[in-house]
Design a protein around this nucleic acid. Structure first.
Length: 236
DNA sequence: GCATTAATTGGTC
DNA sequence: GACCAATTAATGC
C-alpha cells in the first residue's frame, strides 16, 4: 500500500507535482505522499464522500463521472498517467461531487488535504499551474455543455470517439482505450443503443472498425470532417 | 462448459 | 431520440 515511489524518479514529466515540487521546501511534503492501488472498475472517489485529498494517476486510466437523478451517469472526463483527480473537492469543499473509477488496474498518488494545502502555500509555481489547470477545465466544461446541447447523437458519438483518439491514440489501427458502449454513451450524453447504432453505421461506411469492445478509426479525416463546424475550439 | 454481462437489433412511444 | 424487450455474442469463473 505504501511503498512510495519517489517523485524524482517518476516517469510522469507532465505531472503538476513533478513539474513544480522538486524544490527544497516541497520535499518534506512529497514524503507524505501515499500510493494506493485500485483494481479495474473500482471506485476510489465516491460522490458525496468526504474529501480525502488530491489524487494523481501514477499509472493507468480513470473515468470521472457525475451521477444524475435516475442513476444516469455523465462521464466528465477520462484521465491517464500524470493527471490530477479530485481537485474540485479540496479547499472549501467538504464532499466530492464527482466519482472516479479505475478503467483498468491502476496506481495512484494521494496527498492529504493538509499536505496539499501546505504545498500550495509554499510553492507558488504549483498554485499558478493549478490555476491554469482550473481555467482550462472550466473552458472544457463549458464546451461540453454546448456540445451536448447542440450536437446530434451521431455527432456526439463521433466527438467522443475522436476524443478517445486524441487523448489515448491508436496502435495497429485500434484505440488504446477500451470503453463499453455504455461508457461511450455516458461520455457522449446519450444511450448505449444509440452509440451502437452510430458505430455500426460507421462500420458499414468503412470509417470505423470494431472487434468487440475494441474500436479502431480507419478514416480519421472523414470522422473529423463530420463535426468540423462544432470545433471552433479543441477539446471536450 | 456454464452463467453472467455486454452488444446488437427491432419495436413503441 | 429515449426506453423496453428479445436475441446473440463475449467474457468471467
Amino acid at each position: 500500500m505504501n511503498a512510495s515511489i519517489d517523485c524524482k524518479s517518476c516517469h510522469n514529466e507532465q505531472c503538476l507535482i513533478k513539474k513544480n515540487c522538486l524544490t527544497e521546501e516541497a520535499i518534506p511534503y512529497l514524503e507524505q505522499k501515499l500510493m494506493v492501488k485500485a483494481k479495474k472498475n473500482q471506485p476510489f472517489i465516491l460522490e458525496g464522500a468526504p474529501v480525502h485529498g488530491l489524487y494523481f494517476i501514477y499509472k493507468g486510466k480513470v473515468k470521472v463521472a457525475k451521477t444524475g437523478i435516475n442513476g444516469k451517469e455523465q462521464i466528465v472526463r477520462l484521465c491517464q498517467d500524470g493527471e490530477i483527480i479530485g481537485h474540485r473537492g479540496f479547499g472549501v469543499g467538504q464532499f466530492y461531487h464527482i466519482s472516479a473509477v479505475a478503467i483498468e488496474d491502476i496506481m495512484l498518488c494521494n496527498f492529504s488535504n493538509e499536505v496539499i494545502n501546505n504545498m500550495l502555500q509554499k510553492v507558488p509555481q504549483l498554485s499558478y499551474n493549478m490555476m491554469l489547470f482550473y481555467a482550462e477545465e472550466l473552458n472544457r466544461s463549458e464546451n461540453k455543455v454546448r456540445k451536448i446541447a447542440q450536437m446530434t447523437v451521431r455527432e456526439k458519438v463521433i466527438d467522443a470517439i475522436l476524443y478517445m483518439n486524441r487523448k489515448f491514440g491508436q496502435t495497429n489501427n485500434l484505440l488504446n482505450i477500451q470503453l463499453s458502449r455504455k461508457e461511450i454513451a455516458d461520455f457522449a450524453g446519450t444511450t448505449d443503443e444509440q452509440v451502437i447504432r452510430v458505430i455500426s453505421s460507421l462500420k458499414k461506411e468503412g470509417i470505423l472498425i470494431a472487434q468487440g469492445k475494441r474500436l479502431g478509426i480507419v478514416k480519421l479525416d472523414k470522422l473529423k470532417n463530420e463535426i468540423k463546424e462544432h470545433n471552433f475550439f479543441l477539446d471536450s
